[in-house]
Write a protein that binds this DNA or RNA. Structure first.
Lengths: 334, 334
DNA sequence: ACGTTCCGAGAAATCGATTTCAGAAATCGA
DNA sequence: TCGATTTCTGAAATCGATTTCTCGGAACGT
């Protein structure tokens, strides 16, 4: 219960605190005799340095923060594996925070990261324009954004080419003979949401199809958002014959709404999603989807972040990875 | 970039650091004039107290740690919502760590929690016997375990009655006419895994059915674990006519293995899982499952933890919540 | 009017580590 | 052998906050 301090270790080893610190942290030479006594004392007392005192002095921690926008989204949890593997190999710990697509929560966690002097932060911003990383920038804490970008700040990022991927998916639906393709957009305030919408429109344009305003419905990146959007599209007098849902959770909602309405895919409507679901959904219903290299995004983002953390200077770095359209049953019309 | 310290605030306000601290933290009276000047200086300089320095002095933080055993498991992520809601209402932040069912990682995160002097920790231990929370106990950091218990430590916990739930599920399969019920167990080293197995056996006993050793297969709490276990059961000369899978991710693997083998449920085999999947799987395939009140587990565990954090003394508290068997298509044999 | 109590605010100690500084001992060179 | 240099170690300063201690002046009672 009583905290073991460096002073007690020093006392039982019969040396000064400075010597204890030298033995534990630096490569300065300490006579073998003292070194031995210090290590023995550390072992016996079960000494564990107080990391707050240490990082107060050194202004450095070995904790990385990951602030993600929705912890229930498998996309993020899969990515976190990549983050953890790289981080722990480099001796860093990873703590996660769930901003829940809420700017206030996000801001609070950014402040926590700043106050805790985290070594670096990975962030998927809730908004491209309203999210501010000033509190981190002020303290020189490096940030890499993942999955989404920030409009203002000059920050490293790692993401896929949403525009291209969405265009490709749209053209795939066109090839399957779709002429009225509905698009369920996520939060347009995110670069991800906007990029995918633009890609969809580009796809229609490239195919020479008109882009009807009523075919684009946007909602939250949630299951409910996808369900409601789908219901609205199904209520149109002239129903779409193709549907492109720009997020995985929304796709689940869309499938549910289609089931409920008795609309079958691919027969009545060709369906394409974005991001693989958990293995769960895809196993049973084989949904065509744009698949992102989630693990790789986490891995590369973390490597980038650690280079920043180490103080290495290099120009703003942007990494664009490839997303792959995985064609499965839900979009194939014989 | 330069950190704004309390000293600078004091200087620009023309007061001592002690006064600044008093204005910001305590209810001690400070003359309105000085108070005003301090607040103005804080605002102008954008002062943000260094939480390390503060908690070094006060030995207290407002961060709760949640160490879960698998971040990709929807059960945990759903629970975290309950945690966050309660915590943030009380002014606490929540950081997550993913121990990944790995004792070493778990231990590392426990040490991080100790070193960071977190106010309290919620833990789903990787092992009932090998996980040690000594590092936290030594520093007086309260712990509440969730979903699983620890054998040794006298610690508060919140979980469901796994034994009863598993027994009920088993009896349900018996009622459906099953006579050879396979059981896919998770890690028996966890109280959860062991409790569910015991419940299954109790169910068989209550129904007067023999419990055949070859019908129980255990594996990791993972999709692959469920797939492999199912394959082994299907390879038995005398195939089971019912299958109870004791974890959600494993259930996904089991469904996959059944599909691959061309075994249909509920016709060829009646299937019951534990924990709802993401809405994903259940939507499409309607799997009967023991459903846990995940949000509620998170909520109550956090309330308990916060009471401990506040120093309130009360005897070791154990909360058992009810799990509900949700009967769906996968187990109904006409 | 004078001594006592109370109150507000600054000076200084403190939390637990790291790091600078300075001094004693050991080593080296001539 | 003696002075110069190097090596090792402890004392003390430091990080940025909070909290205790202390003291001057105002308020109060007799």
């Amino acid at each position: 219960m009583a905290q073991v301090t460096i002073r007690e270790v020093a006392r039982t080893a019969g040396v000064s605190p400075a010597t204890v610190s030298r033995v534990l942290n630096t490569s300065e030479t300490v006579s073998p005799d003292l070194k031995e006594r210090v290590l023995a004392a550390v072992r016996d007392l079960g000494y564990r340095p107080n990391s707050q005192a240490r990082s107060l002095r050194t202004r450095a921690t070995t904790v990385l923060g990951v602030i993600i926008s929705d912890i229930t989204n498998p996309f993020f949890t899969a990515m976190v594996r990549g983050v953890e593997d790289v981080a722990s190999a480099a001796g860093y710990s990873v703590v996660l925070a769930n901003a829940d697509e809420d700017l206030r929560k996000e801001q609070r966690y950014l402040e926590v990261a700043a106050a805790e002097q985290m070594a670096g932060v990975l962030l998927s911003p809730a908004s491209a324009t309203e999210t501010s990383i000033d509190v981190l920038a002020e303290r020189g804490i490096p940030v890499v954004t993942i999955d989404r970008r920030l409009k203002s700040a000059d920050v490293d990022w790692v993401m896929v080419d949403n525009h291209r991927a969405a265009k490709e998916a749209t053209l795939h639906l066109v090839e399957q003979g779709c002429r009225r393709i509905g698009f369920i957009a996520g939060r347009l305030g995110t670069t991800t949401g906007a990029g995918r919408l633009a890609g969809y429109r580009a796809g229609l344009r490239a195919a020479g199809l008109p882009s009807a305003r009523e075919l684009v419905v946007s909602g939250e990146f949630r299951i409910d958002g996808g369900r409601e959007a789908t219901e609205r599209l199904l209520a149109l007098p002239d129903r779409p014959d193709g549907l492109f849902v720009s997020n995985n959770l929304m796709t689940i909602g869309a499938v549910d709404a289609l089931d409920t309405a008795g609309v079958r895919f691919p027969d009545d409507i060709a369906l394409v999603g974005f991001d693989d679901m958990m293995p769960a959904l895809s196993l049973r219903s084989q949904i065509t989807a744009v698949s992102q290299p989630t693990y790789e995004i986490g891995r590369q983002a973390t490597e980038l972040l650690l280079r920043r953390v180490s103080g290495e200077p290099f120009p703003e770095r942007h990494i664009t990875l490839n997303a792959e359209l995985k064609v499965r049953e839900s979009s194939i019309r014989a």
